[in-house]
Design a protein around this nucleic acid. Structure first.
Length: 445
RNA sequence: GCGGCUAUAGUUCAGUGGCAGAACGCCGCUCUGUGGCAGCGGAUGUCGUGGGUUCGACCCCCACUGGCCGCCCCA
C-alpha cells in the first residue's frame, strides 16, 4: 500500500445520473418478480424474445412517432462510425421502449409467413433521457409482452385484449400488489383518431382562452393530451368536450364492447376512463393503464399498453395487428417495497434471508478441514459460509448469529472424532452429531 | 427541459462565521472452546465538487454534480 495522503484528489467515479446499482439486498425481490412473471407468461403460451438494447434511430422515429416526447427529446442517440469511406455513418439509439424492437424482429424473421399468432415477452433495460425522479430513471427495466400476427391468426380478436388484461390482473395479484386499478379506454382506429382530433380541435377553439397555459399549447400541438390535463380548474370545461367514445366507428365500438364483455366474464374489475390517452403514436383502439396508490408518488402508472394495429405496416412490414403492454419493473419493485414497509409497521416482523450454517474453525490449522466441510455441505444444496481460524470464538459467534441459523464448531475436539458441535441460534440448543447427520440437522429449522 | 428543496461518519440525522457531533452499526476489553443482554473504551470524516466573500467558511454567496418533490411526459 502507498502512503495515506499522497493521492491527488480526483472526483469519485459514480453511477451516472439516473442510473443505479441494484445491490444484493434488493436483487432477490427483482428475481422473484421476474420469476413470477416468466412462470405466468409460460402458462399463457408466451415465449421469450431478447432484442438488442440499441437499434437504428429510424426504428423509433417511425414506430414510436417523430412528434412524441420520447423521440423528440428523450433518446440517447449517437452517430456510429462508418465502416468504409464510401459508407454513410449510421445513427443509433438506445431503445426507449421495446415494442418497436419486437415488431422489427417479427418482420425481420418473417414470422408472418408462419400464419401463426406470436406471443412474445421480454424483460430488460430501456433508456430515456428524462429528469430522474422517484420511479423514473434513465435506465429502467420493463417487463412486457406482445401478441401479434396476421389478421387470420386472430390477432385482432377482442379476446386477445381481454386475455392480456386478465393476465396482468393475475400477475399483480400473484405478486401481492394491493389496490391496483385498471383504467380502460378505446381511442378508436387510426382513422377514428384523425376524425376525432379534428372534432376536438374545433371544440377547443371557443374555450381555449379559458384553459391553463399548458392546455392552450396542447390545443394546437396535441389536442388529445388536453384530456389528460390534471389542473382542477380545467376539469369542468374538459368534461364538456366531445368524448372519444362517441366518435369511434361502429366496428371499434363493437370491438371495445367485446373486450369489456370478456373482462366481465373473467370478473376482472376495470374503470372506464374516456380521458385515458397514451403518448405513443402507434396505439389504436384498446388502451389501458394499471395504477396504484402506494409508493410511487405522482408516477402512479405501474404499467401501460394498448393495441397497435398499424405498427407493423408503419415499419414496412405486412399487416399485423397486435396488442401489448410494458410493466415498469422499477415501479413494481417500489410498490412492493412500500407495501412491505407498511406490513412491517403493522406486524413488526422482518424476515432475514439467513444461511443454513456458519462453519467456525477454531484455529488456522482447522481452515482446510472447514473448507472441505463447506464444499461437502454446499454440494448437499445447503447455504454455507466459512469463517477463519484466526477469529476469536466470540467474533465467530457474533458473525455466525448475524448470517446463519446454525454454527458448526471445528476445533481440536472435533478433529479427532467424527462428531461435530452444532449450535442452533433460534433455540440455543447445542448438540454433537456425526458428519453424516449434518445435512439433515442443518436443513431443519 | 422548467421550478422548488437538499447534500455532514458505514447508516439515519443534529450543528455553529472561530477545535467536527449524537444514535445505530463497526472494532477492542470485561469474557483465552460459546453469540444474543449489559458495562467500559476506541476509530469514524477530502462536512458532494470547484470558485468567491472573510483575519478565519461545514456555516454566507455563485457555479457545477447528485438525490428528492412538483411540472412536462411516461413505465
Amino acid at each position: 500500500m502507498t502512503d495515506s495522503k499522497k493521492a491527488p484528489a480526483r472526483p469519485a467515479l459514480k453511477a451516472v445520473r439516473g442510473t443505479r446499482d441494484l445491490l444484493p439486498d434488493q436483487t432477490p425481490l427483482w428475481n422473484h418478480v421476474e420469476t413470477t412473471a416468466r412462470n405466468l407468461f409460460a402458462r399463457y403460451g408466451f415465449g421469450e424474445i431478447r432484442t438488442p438494447v440499441f437499434e437504428a434511430t429510424e426504428l423509433f422515429a417511425r414506430g414510436v412517432g417523430e412528434e412524441t416526447d420520447i423521440v423528440s427529446k428523450e433518446m440517447f442517440t449517437w452517430e456510429d462510425r462508418a465502416r468504409a469511406a464510401s459508407e454513410k455513418p449510421q445513427t443509433l439509439t438506445l431503445r426507449p421502449e421495446n415494442t418497436a424492437g419486437v415488431v422489427r424482429a417479427y418482420i425481420e424473421h418473417q414470422f408472418a409467413n408462419s400464419g401463426a399468432l406470436q406471443k412474445l415477452y421480454y424483460i430488460g433495460p430501456q433508456f430515456r433521457r428524462e429528469r430522474p425522479q422517484r420511479g423514473r430513471y434513465r435506465q429502467f427495466w420493463q417487463i412486457g409482452a406482445e401478441v401479434i400476427g396476421p389478421p387470420s391468426s386472430g390477432s385482432e380478436s377482442p379476446l386477445r385484449d381481454a386475455e392480456i388484461l386478465e393476465m396482468l390482473a393475475t400477475l399483480l395479484d400473484e405478486l401481492g400488489i394491493r389496490g391496483w386499478q385498471l383504467e380502460l379506454n378505446s381511442v378508436g382506429s387510426a382513422q377514428d383518431r384523425v376524425h376525432y382530433n379534428e372534432t376536438l380541435r374545433a371544440a377547443l377553439q371557443p374555450i381555449r382562452s379559458q384553459l391553463c397555459a399548458d392546455c392552450q399549447r396542447r390545443a394546437d400541438t396535441n389536442p388529445l393530451r388536453v384530456l389528460d390535463c390534471k389542473v382542477p380548474e380545467d376539469q369542468p370545461l374538459i368534461d364538456t368536450l366531445p368524448r372519444i367514445a362517441d366518435h369511434i366507428s361502429a366496428d371499434s365500438r363493437a370491438h371495445f364492447d367485446a373486450v369489456r364483455a370478456a373482462l366481465d366474464a373473467c370478473k376482472v374489475p376495470y374503470h372506464l376512463n374516456p380521458r385515458l390517452v397514451r403518448g405513443l403514436d402507434y396505439y389504436t383502439r384498446t388502451t389501458f393503464e394499471f395504477t396504484v396508490t402506494t409508493g410511487l408518488g405522482t408516477q402512479n402508472a405501474l404499467l401501460g399498453g394498448g393495441r397497435y394495429d398499424g405498427l407493423s405496416e408503419m415499419l414496412g412490414g405486412p399487416r399485423a395487428p397486435g396488442i401489448g403492454f410494458a410493466i415498469g419493473e422499477d415501479r413494481l419493485i417500489l410498490t412492493l417495497q412500500a407495501q412491505q414497509q407498511e406490513d412491517a409497521r403493522t406486524s413488526g416482523a422482518a424476515s432475514a434471508n439467513l444461511l443454513d450454517a456458519y462453519i467456525a474453525p477454531l484455529t488456522p490449522a482447522q481452515n482446510p478441514a472447514a473448507l472441505a466441510l463447506a464444499r461437502e455441505l454446499r454440494a448437499a444444496n445447503l447455504k454455507i459460509e466459512v469463517g477463519d481460524g484466526s477469529f476469536k470464538l466470540r467474533k465467530s459467534f457474533e458473525t455466525a448469529n448475524s448470517l446463519a441459523r446454525h454454527i458448526i464448531l471445528l476445533g481440536e475436539d472435533e478433529a479427532g472424532s467424527e462428531l461435530y458441535t452444532v449450535k442452533t441460534f433460534a433455540s440455543g440448543e447445542q448438540v454433537k452429531v456425526p458428519r453424516a447427520n449434518l445435512p439433515e440437522l442443518l436443513a431443519g429449522v
